[in-house]
Write a protein that binds this DNA or RNA. Structure first.
Length: 314
DNA sequence: AAACCGTGGCC
DNA sequence: TGGCCAAGGTT
């Protein structure tokens, strides 16, 4: 009662936070007993990856490596292998590197400030703010794709946020962040969840939205997006080839003979992967591209070479 | 700044 | 069916 006026939430913010209180998903990294390490692992896994795909991997990781020190004690290749098919395996490598830094420089405790978190590999603006807010209760401006979309529609009347995060969006997000820490965390989590569950990129469920009456996008007549998102090609790309090679390396503990990547048939892993790699190889009149890909993977530390062939670092 | 980096599900 | 999308980071 009787709070200072400048600490008050706007009606829209109160409505979204109230909606979150009864509609939030029961995700394990939101549990009270979840450690900062658990939050950090979840945030890395969730980068560009749907929740449903993350859930089983996150459970496995936290059981196997309940602390940063536990992960740091194993070779990075184990992290990459346990990453499974989450995609962007560099995330696993960087998370392992972050665990090493946390173990050595922070006595095994995940740091709790945005600046410290951002200095760790694989942690950028979003993840640093998210871990600080959700694991430590820090007032930090969390801006992810969901929050950007919610704020673009609700306050800017746009169908979608800009192609890349810009200064105006950041300023808007900062101006909206509640001053009091607990409320700021609630706002971050609630606006993100609204974007994930109702205010979705396609077919938003406005009928269920707690702030539909004050939504600038609805008021404007739900205009179409101003731009056309750039699609990312896949078939025949380096990414597809890298993915196929990584799948082969993940599937076995023993090094894959180097020549096996250039000769047919590739009989490692399951049949689907074998077909995939053979197909890609057949498309190449030269092997220079595959050679380059393998060198890239070696240089990045996603793979290591030995006399016996190529394998995950171990 | 724009391109690159995996994967799979959905309409 | 295939383009779009998913709690981004790095160069």
């Amino acid at each position: 009662m009787d709070r200072s006026p400048h600490l008050a939430l706007s009606p829209e913010q109160s409505a979204i936070i109230d909606w979150f209180a009864t509609n939030a998903r029961d995700l394990p990294w939101r549990a009270a007993e979840c450690t900062p390490w658990g939050v950090l692992v979840s945030e890395i896994m969730l980068q560009q990856t749907p929740v449903v795909r993350v859930l089983p991997r996150w459970q496995e990781w936290l059981e196997r490596w309940p602390t940063p020190a536990a992960l740091a004690a194993e070779p990075s290749g184990e992290a990459v292998r346990a990453w499974g098919r989450l995609g962007y395996p560099r995330r696993a490598l960087r998370l392992h590197a972050a665990a090493l830094r946390i173990t050595e420089e922070y006595d095994g405790e995940v740091p709790g400030t945005v600046a410290e978190l951002k200095s760790l590999p694989g942690i950028g603006d979003y993840t640093a703010a998210a871990v600080a807010a959700f694991a430590f209760g820090v007032r930090a401006t969390v801006v992810d794709t969901n929050i950007r979309r919610v704020e673009a529609r609700l306050f800017s009347g746009l169908a979608l946020p800009a192609p890349t995060l810009n200064a105006a969006e950041m300023a808007l997000a900062e101006s909206l962040l509640p001053l009091e820490a607990t409320n700021s965390v609630r706002w971050n989590a609630a606006s993100m969840e609204l974007g994930a569950l109702l205010c979705t990129a396609r077919s938003p469920q406005c009928a269920l939205c707690p702030v539909r009456a004050s939504c600038a996008w609805i008021a404007a007549g739900e205009p179409e997006p101003i731009y056309r998102p750039k699609g990312q090609p896949w078939a025949g790309t380096d990414r597809q080839l890298r993915g196929a090679v990584m799948a082969v390396l993940r599937a076995t503990d023993s090094p894959t003979p180097w020549d096996m990547f250039f000769t047919e048939p590739v009989l490692i892993g399951d049949a689907e992967l074998s077909r995939s790699l053979r197909h890609l190889h057949a498309l190449e009149s030269e092997n220079s591209r595959l050679e380059r890909i393998l060198q890239d993977l070696l240089q990045e530390g996603l793979a290591q070479r030995s006399a016996a062939g190529l394998s995950l670092p171990g």
